[in-house]
Simulated scan of single mutants.
Amino acid sequence: MSSAVTIVRFHKTGSADVLQFDQIPLPEPGQGEVRIRVKALGLNRAEIMFRNGQYLETPVSPSKNGYEASGIIEAVGPDVDSKWIGKAVSTVPGTFKLNEHGVYGEVAVVPFHGIAEYPSTLSYEEGASIWMQYLTAYGALVWLGKIAKGDFIVITAASSSVGVAAIEIAKAEGAISIAVTRTATKKAKLLELGADHVIVTDEEDLVVRVNEITSGKGARIVFDPIGGKILESLAAATAPKGTIFEYGALAPEPTPYPLFTALAKYLTIRAYTLFEVTPDPIFPKAKQYIFDHLASGAFKPIIDKRFRFAEIVEAHRYMESNAQIGKIVVTL
């Protein structure tokens, strides 16, 4: 085994070009940690924001990056059962800090509590495309939103991996998904992936279409990672006593609070992230729910495009283009 490995770090914030390949000594797992020989990486929007210095965690130079990896455990810390060596696992976002345990590299050292097994029928690429999307959607829709059969669910940025996962979860729970996308280029694919309705905001009025679809009732749940001005339209499209989950901040402009609409409808506009799920007692139940639905085939990670490890800068650029439907994966 080589005494040195390559990882990806950035020494200053900025565009994708700040990502660089650094050689470091092979790291040994410490107390409560495991080392994974990485086979695939699943990219997430949070990693773009972190690289830009616009995330919940502030980068400390030189900073690691990356939440999701799949691979084989090749070493364990002194207090971790050695029986885990040789097992295929993936890493779970929300269980570690990017600065400390980012997974972009030939190997990744992460906390033992930050790994999970996945169905053996999945490939390494699919194994790296699970937890961010499904846990994020599960937490809002199933755990907090308690969606039920017949509920109307508006899902913005629906072509993202989390958006696609939300469509699958809505279908599994018998809810009616209303996927929202900017351009018509993604409409057919979203319908193919199971969306019950698709609204193209470049061509259609979001509020008018939601009212048509729901016969004027509005959506009980809105699942939105964008924020910004669209929140006003989303509030107008939400049913009385409905809930809007804001789980991101992709909009370039500030997010206005739709006070009068919220007052008139008794709306709940709730900030939410995956980090609420992982430390909660619901976490094991959430993981089991996702595992079971993956094993049954009800959930199927959608991989949009694969890049080689040497192309990780190009992979970041591609994510920033917003062209993808589903997950962007880097293979090693």
Rank of each mutant, 00 (worst) to 15 (best):
L41T: 03
D81V: 04
I7F: 01
P258S: 01
S61I: 13
Q23G: 08
M319R: 07
V34G: 02
T181M: 12
A166C: 08
D151T: 14
V38D: 01
A158R: 08
A188Q: 15
I199E: 10
W143N: 11
L26A: 05
L43A: 06
I48C: 06
S63V: 04
G114Y: 03
G242H: 12
K265A: 02
A88I: 10
G32C: 06
V110H: 05
K83C: 13
A286E: 01
I269P: 01
S160H: 02
G227N: 08
G216C: 07
Y124D: 13
I153M: 09
G139N: 02
A140R: 00
M1L: 11
I178G: 04
Y104W: 05
G71D: 02
T238F: 08
A323I: 01
L191I: 12
A165N: 03
T181C: 14
T58D: 01
Q324K: 02
R35G: 11
L267M: 01
A195Q: 05
A172L: 09
P78L: 05
F309I: 06
Y124L: 07
T185K: 15
L206Y: 00
A108F: 01
Y272G: 06
P225V: 09
T58P: 00
V210I: 12
Q20W: 09
K97T: 07
P254D: 13
A88E: 12
Y134K: 08
T214C: 13
T201G: 07
P59H: 07
L259N: 02
V329N: 07
G105N: 06
F307S: 11
Y257R: 04
T181G: 10
E276V: 02
V208I: 06
Y118W: 13
F21A: 05
A137N: 04
V162M: 11
R209V: 11
A188M: 11
A4H: 05
I325S: 12
A148W: 06
F309V: 06
T6R: 12
K97E: 07
I282S: 07
L294N: 04
S15W: 12
K97R: 10
K327G: 11
K300H: 15
A175R: 06
G14A: 07
I153H: 05
I130M: 04
P258H: 00
I169C: 02
G242W: 13
A264H: 00
L122M: 13
A170C: 15
A137Q: 04
R37E: 15
I24Q: 05
G150L: 13
R220M: 14
V313E: 13
F152R: 12
A262Y: 14
E28L: 10
Y118I: 10
H113A: 14
G30I: 04
P252T: 03
I226W: 00
A75R: 05
D79V: 11
V164M: 05
I328F: 10
I312W: 00
I226Y: 00
D304A: 14
A40M: 11
I167E: 08
T95R: 09
A166M: 06
D224Q: 13
G227Y: 06
S123Q: 08
G216H: 03
Q23P: 02
G297R: 09
L332C: 04
L190C: 07
R209C: 09
V76T: 07
I130D: 03
I48T: 13
F10S: 00
V60D: 11
G71M: 01
I169M: 03
A46C: 12
R220N: 10
E117D: 08
D280N: 09
L191P: 03
A249C: 12
